[in-house]
Amino acid sequence: MISILKALWTVFVHLFKRKVTVLYPEEKPYIPPRWRGRIILARDPDGGERCVACHLCAIACPVDCISLQATEDEYGRRYPEFFRINFSRCIFCGYCEEACPTYAIQLTTDFEMSEYNRRNLVYEKEDLLISGTGKYPGYNFYKVAGLSIKGKDKGEAENELPPVDVKGLMP
């Protein structure tokens, strides 16, 4: 009985406490850099698309809102033919970013993306691609991958020996 009254009093006193609500949009809140907001596709330091269309973001997505198709340029560098995120389904869980092996897909601090028309929330590759490297400067997947692309032949990646000469007779 006393505890009930104590509870009532404690709650009542909160009427005069400072409110924790931040009155957005008049007052802008602090957004930490690792905020999980609007998803972007980053580029390599050399300007090429970082996304190699491995489909890992799509499979990691719990609401299945990412869909893409892989294709290749004539030198075998893989990139997405289309890359679509349906933000009207996205829950900004960040699993896609976690799954991405090339730091291509990144969640940003932008969250102000309301639309009156749901269709405007469907972002294609052109809407997602940014011109920089985003949160991870310097990383270039093809510099560590074994696949050869234009300008990087076999054995020219980091930590690689020159290609084996099969016809060589040296032991």
Partner: peptide
Amino acid sequence: HRYSGRTAIRADIDV
């Protein structure tokens, strides 16, 4: 059961 992109495949045509 891991089929992906269910809610995005046709999103460009209809959400």
